[in-house]
Design a protein around this nucleic acid. Structure first.
Lengths: 82, 82
DNA sequence: GCCCATTTGTACGTATGTATG
DNA sequence: GCATACATACGTACAAATGGG
């Protein structure tokens, strides 16, 4: 099934890294919707606050944008890794 | 009321010993939550740092495990005294 | 237009864990 | 040992936006 977050980094960072990996490997394609914060809670067994923080990090990295009431979407042009 | 810490050992050790006694006598049952560090501060009139150190000792003794944002819990299988 | 479920976004209180003086 | 501060995380709650019926 899912994925285990067990590293030393904060959970929200680990989760953001995993989501970034999925974007870069095409699991979440450009323009497509990322699972909702609530869905991520279940998959990764974290609180919604933590998935929220992870999604926020993705936006700060320029990888996703949130649309209130609809979801969080991968940007059309994924920037290179910094 | 509660309990007085007046022995020769460091406070955090005395507090850890008392908590271990409570675990072994079933006051804190396996899987149940131990009062928070802040609660222990009040009961034993020590600083949060000291209750923190005591809880850390409990974890090192394999008697408890901490869950960030939720509390410190007695392990399901309490090991024999060393 | 009006409910209702879903989702993002924000906020508050509590708790652990760590670091500094 | 104590006091304080900060980062992270959980639980809960609520507002606002969206879209289907």
């Amino acid at each position: 099934m899912g994925f285990d977050l067990e590293g030393a980094d904060p959970l929200c960072i680990q989760l953001a890294d995993e989501l970034e990996r999925r974007i870069r490997t095409g699991v979440y394609a450009p323009g497509r919707r990322i699972p909702s914060a609530s869905d991520l809670c279940e998959e990764f067994s974290v609180s919604r606050q933590t998935s929220n923080s992870a999604l926020k990090l993705l936006k700060e990295r320029g990888l996703a944008r949130g649309v209130s009431g609809r979801g969080t979407f991968v940007v059309d042009d994924v920037p290179e890794p910094s």
